[in-house]
């Protein structure tokens, strides 16, 4: 039966909907398509339209102008800065951690990865409150430091940029560790032995052989945690002070407190564009790395 069907198909061009398979396929796809159209495509376009519409309904760009000036601009810059700090820190810690895990025996490595990943199953809200309890004036960290009579303790570890970056970095760490672990496992350790046989010391091997080989992975891990941090809401909102307002918090304030939908829409679009630009970069970097790997493997 199938043979006759496929044999006939190219010979007699039919109308698109005439094929039974096509009709069945549409029936299956319809719910998801409708769902996405209503709840994803429509909101994005209406947000875009909203951001371009003046109070009287005419076309305007002044919401964007607003979003890119004054306090809003400084919020945007704060967002970029905190995201960059988070990216760098999670990259550094992720690198050290992934490096340590690749040196473990497989059983311990699996266990270590579990420890890194499992906290991620817990709600971000819960983890953030966990940090708040840990880092507060009477929290575990400061109590310990005070008990050890470290000069200057207790430190202000919450409601400032330090607090936000501690929080976001811990949220991003599993991503960077997972990514870097994969890349590091892919590096042929014998290349390092080869370099050693030629007389290269540990530092030289690391800088000249190891880093260039894991470089593309580092770049994509860093960019990933950067763009994930851009839109982060809970942790910065709970662990930061007024100076650490990030763009997601600002959008929330505009909508829930000021009922200012157009401005919020413009900021949302800016955030979306920044994220897309970041994703594009990640894709470029990783495809560069992949093609390099593919060619070196052949």
């Amino acid at each position: 039966m199938a043979a006759t069907l496929t044999a006939n198909a190219p010979a007699r061009p039919r109308k698109l909907l005439a094929s039974r398979r096509t009709r069945v396929g549409i029936v299956y796809a319809l719910p998801v398509v409708v769902y996405l159209l209503v709840l994803f495509v429509y909101p994005i376009f209406s947000t875009l339209l909203l951001s371009l519409k003046d109070a009287d309904g005419s076309f305007t760009l002044h919401w964007y102008a607003d979003a890119l000036t004054g306090v809003n601009l400084s919020v945007l810059i704060t967002t970029l800065r905190i995201s960059a700090e988070t990216a760098v820190l999670s990259l550094v810690f992720g690198f050290v951690l992934a490096q340590a895990i690749t040196r473990l025996r497989p059983v311990w490595a699996g266990l270590a990865m579990l420890v890194v990943v499992v906290p991620h199953f817990v709600s971000a809200l819960v983890r953030t409150y966990g940090w708040i309890i840990m880092l507060g004036d009477k929290g575990l960290v400061n109590e310990t430091l005070t008990a050890m009579s470290v000069p200057g303790a207790p430190f202000q570890l919450l409601y400032n940029e330090l607090g936000v970056v501690i929080g976001t970095t811990s949220m991003m760490l599993p991503y960077t560790v997972l990514l870097l672990y994969g890349v590091m496992r892919g590096v042929d350790r014998r290349l390092l032995a080869a370099a050693a046989s030629m007389g290269a010391g540990r530092v030289t091997i690391f800088c000249r052989i190891y880093l260039p080989l894991v470089g593309p992975g580092l770049a994509s891990a860093g960019l990933l945690s950067f763009i994930l941090s851009l839109g982060y809401y809970i942790t910065p909102a709970l662990m930061g002070g007024p100076k650490q307002t990030m763009i997601a918090t600002l959008i929330n304030q505009q909508v829930t407190k000021e009922n200012q939908w157009n401005g919020a829409a413009a900021q949302g679009v800016i955030l979306l564009l920044l994220t897309l630009a970041g994703l594009l970069l990640v894709k470029l970097v990783s495809s560069l790395g992949a093609s390099r790997k593919k060619r070196s493997a052949s």
Binding site: R190, L191, A194, A196, G201
Partner: peptide, 20 residues
Amino acid sequence: LAPQKRGLGFVFQQYLLFPH
């Protein structure tokens, strides 16, 4: 001595050229 201190040459079966 560590391998890098011996100053010997080594040719591996898998070539092990630096891909970058």
